Simulated assay, not measured.
Amino acid sequence: MNDSLDPYVANINELAWNRRPQHRYRCSGQSETAALGRVKCSNGSIQYKAYCLECGGRGANFPYSQIEGLDEDRIPFITEHDIIPCERCGSAEGSEVHHWAPSYLFEDSHDWPKSYLCRACHLEWHSIVTPKMSSHRRAA
């Protein structure tokens, strides 16, 4: 997460704005420390996110390239999602959260609606509606 001696914690203000945890309503917002946590998605994949140690609010995913070499046993699971059927085709193979407002474009993306789509439907949606999103995301 950072270049300090402990790669599992960071000062929230030193993180890229979209990776900073979104504080929850019960949080004082005074905590300056974030830790690295794992989220087990309903499709079985693992995402790595910074989370606020006070309220548990999470930020956007870290690329796997930034996680390589870290000790998995030191990164706690902060959420495990149940298997939710795809809202489009009904597949029970596990779904992904489709964010209607990507966090790299909208600071209030956590307030926007979300849908649950299987991987195939999610990829199809993005190939039709936002075909250039991947290249924009990497550049952001």
Rank of each mutant, 00 (worst) to 15 (best):
Y25E: 15
D82H: 09
T33G: 07
V39I: 13
G59F: 00
A60M: 14
K114W: 08
Q66D: 10
G59H: 00
P21E: 13
N43I: 05
H122E: 15
I46R: 00
G69S: 12
S109T: 04
S31R: 05
D108A: 09
E93H: 05
G59A: 06
E32V: 06
Q47V: 02
N18D: 15
Q47A: 01
C86F: 11
H99P: 03
A34T: 07
L70S: 00
S91Y: 07
I67E: 01
K114F: 06
C52W: 03
P63S: 11
G44T: 08
Q47Y: 01
Y48Q: 02
H81T: 09
R38C: 07
Y48G: 01
Q66R: 07
S28V: 09
W100C: 11
G37S: 09
A60K: 00
C41K: 10
P76A: 02
A50L: 07
F77Q: 11
C52V: 08
L105N: 07
S65L: 10
S65I: 11
N43Q: 06
T79N: 11
Q66P: 00
C52D: 06
F62L: 15
F62E: 11
N61I: 01
I75P: 00
P102S: 04
C118I: 13
F62Q: 01
E54M: 01
S109W: 14
G59W: 00
E107T: 08
C52G: 06
W100F: 12
Y48W: 12
C41V: 06
H110S: 10
C121F: 06
D71G: 05
G69R: 10
C52I: 08
E107Q: 11
R24E: 15
C86S: 12
L117G: 00
P76G: 11
E72V: 09
C52N: 05
S31D: 15
I78P: 02
I75E: 00
E87Y: 00
C55L: 11
F77W: 14
G29N: 15
S91K: 03
R58C: 09
I78W: 03
L53Q: 07
A60E: 09
V39N: 01
I84Y: 04
Y104K: 01
K49Q: 12
R58L: 12
I78K: 10
N43L: 03
G94K: 08
C118G: 12
H23G: 05
R88P: 01
C27G: 14
A120N: 15
E96P: 05
D71I: 09
F106R: 06
Q66K: 07
R58I: 13
H23D: 14
P21I: 04
G69D: 07
S115V: 03
G29E: 15
A35S: 14
L53W: 01
N18Q: 11
G94C: 11
Y48P: 01
Y25A: 12
R38K: 14
A34I: 09
I78H: 05
R119F: 10
